[in-house]
């Protein structure tokens, strides 16, 4: 017990101890900001991997660690698309995941936003043209927000989300 307390005291608060991110390369469109209005105080995200190399997943996971602590901005990860306000899609859409992506989109209740995370989700990246890839996310479901990077840093994701939701600056 004392050991745990001592460790916590010694560590202190680490939240926010990360380098600042540059301004997003693709600013959020007014339509996307308008669409996000209902979620400015709380946003439930469902992450869908449609064929990423898993670096984007690592960075999404990092958002939940004490350094970025995304929950302090009212963002949390929902366990089911039926509980989600936003879909975060990573990776080029593979032949095998195409149907699953469409199903997930349909099962997410309206109003909803779709965020394409990482270069692969936006333009298929290195996997463009492959027989096993059916094209970027926007070919299958409408995309509202794009966060480029390979992979985007957690600070960049935070910044993009903050800009999208206005007034919530990390």
């Amino acid at each position: 017990m004392f050991r745990i307390l001592k460790k916590s005291l010694k560590t202190g608060v680490v939240t926010g101890q990360h380098p600042k991110a540059d301004a997003p390369r693709e600013p959020a469109s007014p339509e996307a900001v308008q669409k996000t209005k209902p979620f400015t105080r709380s946003l439930a995200i469902r992450e869908v991997d449609t064929g990423s190399c898993n670096a984007c997943e690592m960075e999404m996971n990092a958002l939940a660690n004490p350094v970025y602590d995304v929950e302090r901005f009212g963002v949390h990860i929902a366990a089911s698309p039926r509980h989600a306000d936003a879909l975060v899609v990573t990776g080029p859409v593979t032949v095998n995941m195409t149907r699953a992506l469409k199903d997930v989109y349909e099962q997410t209740p309206d109003p909803k936003i779709v965020i394409a995370l990482g270069d692969c989700a936006i333009n298929c990246g290195m996997f463009k043209g492959s027989y096993a890839v059916t094209g970027p996310v926007e070919r299958h479901v409408p995309v509202d927000v794009r966060i480029p990077g390979c992979p985007p840093r957690p600070a960049e994701i935070l910044k993009a989300l903050a800009e999208l939701r206005e007034g919530k600056k990390p």
Binding site: T50, T94, F127, S130, V133
Partner: peptide, 21 residues
């Protein structure tokens, strides 16, 4: 194999020195 992206076939389209990425 939901995430099969055709990596091995993509390698075959590249030159030996270009495939590190």
């Amino acid at each position: 194999f939901w995430k099969h992206r055709g990596v091995e076939k993509l390698f075959e389209q590249l030159r030996l020195t270009d495939a590190v990425p």
